[in-house]
Nucleic acid binder design. Structure first.
Lengths: 236, 236
DNA sequence: AATGTTCTGTGATTGTAATCAAATGTATCA
DNA sequence: TGATACATTTGATTACAATCACAGAACATT
């Protein structure tokens, strides 16, 4: 079993090191946990989890990113989260017998580590501080969701577009001489589904922001924020 | 200090008995915790918590109900939760130094019990199973929020109105000979703010549902669901 | 019961985003 | 490279909910 984590991705950089919830553990404990972890790679478009399925593991993203979403009655995707390196999901299903509340799909090639329900519960009982970390992290995620929810309540679509651009900027942005270069984790359609608006509407709003000199569309996968202040004003 | 919980509300029925997260404790432990709890009554319209404030306690609703909400940039209220008997809030602020993420306002007279940050942390360290209960409960709440979020993404307002009626029905409804009588926890304006639509729009949609014989408006505080099946169809 | 106050329903109008349709642009793969 | 599928933009039109304005109900207070 010692070999489980001698894979290419983890040889020098154990995935669990990246996970805040395990940060309180000793090097020794980390090593023990590492041996219990299962690694897997997912291709773009593959599902890591499906709504309604009972997931028997907590999954930690070690590379790449995924979208978590639900289907609306009219068949659209409503994206709830974008998880990337260090984020985890499946934790709520571990303690109760609840089935997954959302789908999780790889946005690119994704390296994932998973820890089985029983192993995880075992660890939890020996390390009460991990439980506290999880509560903390869940609180963080709830705060994000609550914000998103508030955002959805905002009827003004410009506000919402501005808000999501700032959110992506703080998460994926790199400051350069011209402004903040943001690598978008989602396609236009994805962003629209995150905001709960039509793809075309988002296109128009972005076009307008570009006309106003607030942003510049570099390519489909990244935009440059030229005027952060204006954007903040727009976001409200 | 023994007197703390000999108040009118708790003499025969300790509020902590109502709280699922403490359900694993022994009678003895419950008694000890009861002594540490602070009781307070709030009048309708009073704030139990304000966004941005640092709350130093976990608060448990012992009677009445409250709304948790954020203000949108345009000044509207976006309601996130309605908490009633047995629900709690403030837990995320206990472990981290995060300030409150929402406002909490009494919808009627409310009896609340609160437990200070330090006391709570102390209890948590002695009873690791409580942490697990909290994670579980947070998971429940996240699932609810995620659903609400999905609901907000639905562009069809009819769906959303149907959805919230069913949600209220399952929480506050009483089956009688004619259908399900639902005591609404919120005013029309409150419901509209929960859905993120205009008050007038909700009025019209409810009117339409009444015309279609799906519901009957008993009075401002309660409606009767006549045709649950149709409502489920409408909600999607 | 009468008054003021808040809440709710309805009509008319406007504004905004969804939808439909088509064109351009961009990736993918043989 | 060219061919094909896929993603994005742009235009025209439509549908729907927001807004404004007011009337009527319900509620509280004296």
């Amino acid at each position: 079993m010692k070999e489980t984590c001698r894979c290419l991705h983890c040889q020098n950089d154990l995935c669990i090191h990246k996970v805040p919830i395990f940060s309180s553990l000793s090097k020794d404990d980390l090593g023990k946990i590492a041996d219990l972890i299962l690694h897997r790679e997912y291709k773009k478009g593959e599902f890591l989890l499906r709504e309604g399925e009972k997931s028997e593991a907590i999954t930690i993203i070690n590379g790449g990113s995924v979208k978590a979403f639900k289907y609306t009655p009219d068949g659209r995707e409503q994206i709830l989260y974008v998880f990337s390196e260090g984020d985890f999901f499946g934790e709520t299903n571990l303690l109760t017998d609840r089935t997954a509340t959302f789908n999780v799909e790889a946005l690119q090639s994704v390296q994932a580590c998973s820890l089985s329900k029983t192993e995880f519960q075992n660890i939890l009982s020996h390390h009460p501080d991990i439980a506290i970390k999880i509560i903390s992290e869940l609180g963080e995620r709830m705060a994000r969701l609550e914000n998103a929810m508030q955002g959805m309540g905002v009827r003004n679509v410009d506000n919402r577009v501005g808000g999501i651009l700032l959110e992506f900027a703080s998460k994926y942005g790199i400051q350069n001489s011209q402004g903040i270069l943001v690598q978008l984790p989602l396609s236009r359609e994805g962003i629209a589904n995150y905001l709960g608006v039509a793809r075309e509407t988002l296109s128009r709003k972005l076009g307008q922001l570009e006309n106003d000199g607030v942003i510049r569309s570099v390519n489909n996968k990244s935009i440059l924020i030229l005027d952060t202040k204006a954007l903040q004003e727009i976001a409200g």
